[in-house]
């Protein structure tokens, strides 16, 4: 597999990046949020008809507003609503704002906290505990 490049960017640049890529013949492929114990960021992926891609990484924060790219690519609207609902990242200027009703998870911002790994109990110990 070829190494992949995720170009660093900041949130104030995303609309301009989307417009520039659109002018170059790219379309919006996807975006997603990544939350680790030390950082949180959003990855934007644009692809061309020849399947080549451009990827950008922007730092994000819960409650920090990111400009929506749905005005450039309407396709982004579901992704932005998903990130907003699961991670609590706010997007300004979304073409359609579901207002937190896309998934309606039992717990708000369910993906914003990093979960602890499951500690496996050996079968014998589990049986004794019961």
């Amino acid at each position: 597999m070829d190494p992949q490049v995720f170009f660093p960017a900041v949130k104030t640049e995303v609309v301009e990046i989307a417009q520039r890529n659109k002018a170059l013949g790219y379309r919006f492929a996807q975006m997603h949020c990544v939350k680790t114990p030390s950082e949180m960021f959003i990855i934007y992926t644009f692809e061309k008809q020849d399947l080549s891609i451009e990827q950008y990484r922007i730092p994000a924060e819960t409650d920090g507003a990111v400009p929506s790219v749905s005005g450039v690519f309407l396709a982004a609207v579901l992704y932005e609503n998903e990130i907003s609902e699961l991670y609590g990242v706010e997007f300004t200027g979304m073409a359609i704002d579901f207002g937190g009703t896309l998934y309606e998870t039992a717990k708000p911002r369910a993906f914003a906290e990093v979960a602890a790994p499951v500690k496996k109990t050996p079968v014998k110990q589990a049986a004794v505990a019961e």
Partner: peptide
């Protein structure tokens, strides 16, 4: 949508 959201992606942390 959201009737069968299971959050399977989140399981990778566990």
């Amino acid at each position: 949508i959201g009737f069968i959201h299971r959050g399977l992606e989140k399981l990778v942390e566990k």
